[in-house]
Amino acid sequence: MIGLASYLCFFVTLALIYGVATLGLNLQWGSAGLFNVGVAGFAAVGAYVSAWITATPVDTHWGGFALPIPLGWLAAMAASALAAFVVGAATLRLRADYLAITTFGAAISLELVALNADRLTGGPFGIAFIPRPFAALSDQPLAFSAANMLLVAAVAGVVFVALERLTRSPWGRVLRALREDEAAAASLGKSPAKFRLQAFVIGAALIGLAGAMQAQFFGFIAPDNYLPVFTFQIWVMLVLGGSGNNKGALLGAVVVWGVWTASGSLFNLLLAPEWQARGAALRVVAIGVVLASVLLWRPRGLIGERATVSRHVE
């Protein structure tokens, strides 16, 4: 019973961490129409920065300042924001899909650095012994996971409320206006590039925060955590939940993470060991098909913003 309850807390904790990343992506895509294919890269920046700052020193790689966790999280947000600023400043004035390609390339390059810059990142083995919040409670599983869940829920709640206010503010309205009709909004004297850059940077900071929180709760990180499939998961969460809607982003995160873990356990249970790698591949196929189907038949997701129409070739 206690096992189940603490597992449930653990599940909710992770789902909400993904929720924070999805909220960040929603600010970028849902509000500003910015296409970020490098979610995993920004999460990795946050995770590694927080790990360096909070972990205990080891001599195999850099970092290990053993500073308090909140400091690590703030630094993670700052670092991801900085990375987004660099990428965004270079590409946001260009056509929209160049940002997609650039963020994609940045994520791949960051993955290479994580994998190969051993002295900095611990290489393929990553960084271990990252302190967990409420470590003092770790001999009482239920209290420990409940405390963690409450902490993450509090963070997600604060992020949610802040984003709700932000998107309803004049700033948020300008963003949406820009997304709908750049020329018209620009003619009102709003500099599209500046607003977009702000949204992109804030969204990336949230994704970095999610990366840091995830690192803290797992206790270790490795480059494997930040493959393109991570980006893909966050996108599916946002699209399924309904982009343009912060509640949808959170709902999508919980639903997709639920289905993902449940199908994972099911495959582990049903498939012979030699088939499990294939089962994992099939899971990605399935989630890809879900994404395409939602885009085709329910573009607003579960509870999305009103769809807007624009026409293209054919």
Binding site: G33, F35, A96, V236, G288, L291
Partner: peptide, 19 residues
């Protein structure tokens, strides 16, 4: 192409790629 915006195509292609 008939309904969505250009960027929705990019998301869809990203999903198709992984699948």
């Amino acid at each position: 192409r008939r309904h969505g915006s250009g960027m929705v195509l990019v998301i869809a292609s990203f999903g198709a790629s992984l699948a």
